[in-house]
Write a protein that binds this DNA or RNA. Structure first.
Lengths: 341, 341
DNA sequence: AGTGGTCGCTAAACTGATTTAGCAGAGCAT
DNA sequence: ATGCTCTGCTAAATCAGTTTAGCGACCACT
């Protein structure tokens, strides 16, 4: 790779100047007293030789690599990761930086290894990302340099970027209230583990808080809350079947994520009920399936791209010590309607 | 990042030896005549100081960075990318390498920029990946070093890794034949663009070839072939509705991918038909939704992880100049049954 | 005694950039 | 003539490793 690339010495020689001169001109150093003509000659030589600096050599001296480590538990390989990485890549590119990506797979040995591999390469900073919004323990090794937590917090006061799940909870509940739903709203996806352990999830609690807040403000209480052992379609399916077996059928259902909603749709379809005429459904995440469902599913979008972008901005441009909350926009789609008759 | 790390000079000093000696010991050089005691002292010193070599410095001399560029058109941010990257990460880690990931977003300027950024960092090789299996033109800049194409081919004879779509086509058709379907098999997802332009897709043609081959061998012809402008759920939905309006209803449907199948399921549900009792469905990709559908969807899995892994192996370990085809395993699920009546 | 070989180790060059310190010459004032 | 400043530029050190060439001590052999 990159054999016979021109070096700074080549450029200097061709320009008839010293390496020092060439270096200063190419770096646009102020306060140097090199003549306009010298500038011209260096630029011309660099152009002609197609000169590109060797960043390994440069960083040896400057201790900057223009490289950011993106370390995640498992995020890089899931559908949720895409946006985070894309946002980070975009922001990094705008700042002439590049991303070194690794995954720990939640394994301490891998994590240790990954972090050492990054530090050995003298990265300028680390973005430590989690798949599920949660609290985590930051490995001490990376605390020697700039760190930003992405989709996570920690007990150390590190800058971090989180989705605003609480506000999303309020938007979701408010959207239902606006459609006239009041006393027959059910919730699918209560989960003791996710709500109780911040190391598992921060989202569950926050969403719940937002929902209860908005409903409370309107003097409304939930008709039913279904517990689910996980947030997968099968659990949403079972929960919805349970709801349909009760004496009062809900007019609207809030699902804690889109996969639950997907399962709920399946149960509704089997029961011969129609969304949104019989039941409205609203949810969280804006998974791609939300738009594919028939009717399309109203939901609040996890702003992955924005979050990835903010993480890089915080890391390189510096900023807020307090958590950065990124808004989760409400996607109004066809699964919402006023309650039937 | 990594301030006050111990250097090789520190280790040498502590061991009471020269940098040369320390370097040789730590690199396990054969044929050096350093005493066992010298070895001990160096290892001890390195251990005590927590010495880790500065890879920027090392690669300046050795022209190896133990870093691979993973350049993709857009793959890094889609659900399809996950597996590719994970496989590549795993294989890279096993070989003590690390991945520098960028995305070109199909934009020539970005691509140019991304490739220069990688080459400036002296990567040891480039994996050039595409989201859709297709033929592409490799930017000449990266031809100076090792390159492997992932999920793509080119006119240059570069090593490449592709899914075996043709064989997948055969498996899919064979699975239906095995269940006893013969003269009422329909196909959803013909597409002139994907079939005609290798720069758009290689998969469409190959899958089709496999399907026709297996059916032809059994003396079976398709009942119907539906054209779709794209392979999204809405197109599958429309195509299935079209099929249901014909006089002979198919006993089985092959969808060119899982999203089409998802749409087909929706149309079947609305028409009050049951999978697989009324109609069997089988498909390609093994998108996560395939397992989430009710009943779960039989499909052939894109072996993303395997492919990512193979790409790294080819790049670092060398190997086959001819295309590496990775098998697409058939996932037998509940959407298959013998034809009704 | 001189020569040659092996052993155990090191000095110094080298990689390709940045950066510090400073030199030569011109112009000007004293 | 001397000293001073300013201009325009360069030599050399530096970053942290790897690698080449070779040095001194010791032993064996003729």
């Amino acid at each position: 790779m990159g054999r016979n690339r021109a070096t700074l010495a080549d450029v200097a020689r061709r320009a008839g100047l010293s390496k020092t001169a060439a270096s200063m001109v190419l770096n646009g150093r102020e306060g140097t007293r090199l003549s306009a003509e010298a500038h011209q000659r260096v630029f011309a030589a660099a152009e002609e030789l197609g000169y590109r600096p060797n960043l390994a050599a440069r960083s040896l001296r400057t201790r900057k690599t223009a490289t950011i480590a993106f370390v995640s538990d498992i995020v890089a390989t899931t559908r949720f990761a895409g946006g985070l990485i894309r946002g980070a890549l975009d922001a990094a590119r705008e700042r002439d930086h590049v991303l070194l990506i690794t995954e720990t797979q939640g394994d301490a040995t891998f994590e240790q290894y990954a972090i050492e591999a990054m530090l050995d390469r003298q990265v300028d900073g680390v973005i430590y990302a989690a798949m599920a919004t949660r609290r985590l323990t930051v490995p001490p090794a990376i605390l020697g340099g700039p760190v930003v937590l992405l989709n996570a917090t920690s007990s150390d006061t590190l800058p971090c970027v989180l989705p605003d799940d609480e506000r999303a909870g309020r938007s979701v509940a408010t959207a239902l209230l606006e459609h006239g739903h009041r006393d027959a709203i059910a919730l699918i996806g209560r989960n003791r583990l996710k709500e109780g352990d911040p190391e598992v999830s921060l989202a569950a609690r926050a969403r719940l808080r937002g929902i209860h807040q908005a409903l409370g403000d309107a003097g409304v209480t939930l008709l039913a809350e279904c517990f689910c052992t996980d947030w997968l379609p099968e659990h949403g399916y079972a929960a919805m079947r349970g709801l349909l077996n009760r004496q009062q059928r809900p007019s609207a259902v809030i699902c804690m994520n889109d996969r639950l909603a997907f399962g709920a749709y399946q149960a509704l379809g089997e029961a011969g009920l129609t969304v949104p005429d019989d039941i409205s459904v609203i949810s969280f995440d804006d998974d791609p399936i939300a738009a594919w469902l028939r009717p399309s599913l109203a939901t609040t979008a996890l702003p992955h791209e924005q979050m990835g972008r903010r993480a890089v901005e915080l890391l390189l441009d510096g900023g807020a010590a307090e958590p950065t909350l990124v808004g989760m926009p409400l996607r109004r789609r066809k699964s919402l309607a006023p309650p039937a008759g």
